[in-house]
Design a protein around this nucleic acid. Structure first.
Lengths: 158, 158
DNA sequence: AAAGATTGACCGCTCAATCTTT
DNA sequence: AAAGATTGAGCGGTCAATCTTT
């Protein structure tokens, strides 16, 4: 007997279609919004979202610096090749590297003043895009529900 | 006078933080789930999500074929370089190309039997991942609310 | 000239290999 | 041997230039 939790018939005729289905919508909305935001950042001659991700992770850290492996845990967009991403931020003067004293292997990424300034410069555009494209279309109640659900999903996925 | 709709103070001290905030959670959940699903597909020696996207777009089409520009509209993940993506699917025997008769410029991407078979082969793994990682964590009511909200957001973003 | 599609060049992501220190 | 980080190779995405047909 087949697994009763899965209806094969329905599965084959009604897959995660692009326009229909909650998951399909989730993928589509993500793709569209990120694309629009990246375009706006580019038009304003500002760095991409991945840079913001790193800058903000460092700014949240107590001393504005993190070990590379700690930074990798905080950053979700492009967790790999962090070394090279930090290379670029360093070349742009937004972060600097610091070798650790206690552990010869270790390296810190440290936020510079320019880095703080850049994140603050990016934020208004980023925030207004999030607000206009995303938050404005949710009622307060919907936002609470969505946030709870997303937290649950994230926790379950590890 | 400053734009009263934007509270600069709040903005600077409470940006779209990674762990906090609905938008940050949205980004994180997307990144984590897509990553897990891609890993599972790879482990099962199945093609990536972008291929599924194309295959399913063609399968939805009445005659299992679409003009390239039509396909570009249906597909959301990687809308650009569709030519090369179709190259790969063609090399794998999952789609074939057909020149149009009425318009010498035109080209169709046509789903092959192997293409249909491959989508059907991918779907159970894909579906069970969606179910386990995403749908299972939403109540029926939450899913309805989420779907409505996402539709609204998508419509507004064009 | 404009539409439809392909190609070339560049950049970013991903993974495995490497190097250093513990 | 294992942890921390960097480097090299290859793949995939992005944009502009190109080619053909209308």
């Amino acid at each position: 007997m087949r697994d009763p939790t899965i209806n094969t018939q329905a599965i084959e005729t009604n897959p995660a279609a692009r326009p229909t289905g909650t998951w399909g919508l989730f993928l589509t909305v993500h793709a569209v919004l990120v694309s629009v935001i990246e375009t706006r950042l580019k038009e304003a001659r500002l760095p991409p979202l991945t840079w913001y991700d790193v800058l903000w992770a460092l700014e949240r850290a107590p001393t504005h610096k993190l070990r590379m492996f700690e930074l990798a845990e905080e950053v979700v967009l492009s967790r790999f090749n962090l070394s090279r991403l930090v290379d670029k931020l360093e070349a742009a003067g937004l972060v600097s590297r610091e070798r650790t004293e206690e552990d010869g292997r270790g390296a810190f990424a440290v936020l510079t003043r320019s880095g703080i300034a850049m994140r603050k410069k990016m934020w208004p555009l980023y925030y207004s895009a999030i607000d206009e494209l995303f938050l404005k279309h949710l009622t307060a109640q919907e936002e609470v529900i969505l946030q709870q659900a997303l937290r649950r999903i994230r926790k379950a996925a590890g």
